[in-house]
Amino acid sequence: MSSQSKLLFVDDEPLILQSLSVLFEEYTVFTAESGASALEILKQHAIDVVISDQRMPQMSGIDFLRFAKEISPNTIRILMTGYADLQAVVDSVNVGEIFRYVNKPWNAEKLKETVRFACTVAEQRRAMTAAKTMSPAVPSLQFSQADEKSEYELLFVDSNPKHLEQFKSFFEPKYKTHITTSPVEAFDLIPKRINIAVVVADSTLPEIEGSDFLIAVKDKYPSVVTVLMTGSQDAKQAIRMINEGSVYRYLVKPFPRESLRLTIESAIINFKLSKQNPATNLKAMEKSFFRSGDSSARSVEELLRTLRGAASARTTY
């Protein structure tokens, strides 16, 4: 992170912008009172981190962040809002692919630390993209060779064996699909099958909560892409999945088959991308930024205990 890092704050409340500009005085700060003018700034400046409010007139924060992702994919996106309504949180993961979700009023130190880390990620991403002048062709979402078996494997964890069978028969033609009702078993399987790219878990599992399980998976195997399926409407859980679990998608049941298929396909692309450009893997970055690989814990339970301790001692969001 350097003082050259450029931040962009978007909020329809000028006093928020004033306050944040002062807090981040050592950065180059841009501010915008609407999504539209923020997009103009994004087009003209290489912004490292953008922090946007959700509830804004004309263009919501999530809509803005979705456009921001297209205009400037290397910019790290943070959503900051005064009220966590579930739909907004879910959309912020699935549509905005945000890095962190921050509640107002915020904690200044935590926010500063979060932005500091986000700037590091953004810088590395940019460096990586610049080094690969022949930027790797992003695999397209078209799957003409649908009948070709992929080298990547999927892992589904659900307490309902019937659902598991459905997932297996739906994906097996293309991906080797592992299924289990036990998160403990699943946790032991991942290191044995190195081609597992995506782990999909239901939120209600025996032994361990699905959200906890995925947080543990992401911590131990940062390259694996995680997807949570949930029937409950819990904004708090969703925020935790974003901030602590770097979850890739948050699927609220029931969902159409097609959206699960698209989720898996784009998760695979995400997996490939992070292999090519490790700076896109936020969890891996986070681990190297904050602590030097202390995941010596063997069992998922043991790991969870360590993670819970770490979560309460977090210095960032």
Binding site: D11, I16, S19, M80, T81, G82, N103, K104, P105, W106
Partner: peptide, 8 residues
Amino acid sequence: NTPLGFVK
């Protein structure tokens, strides 16, 4: 929460 945000 918005005013609380900047006031805090």
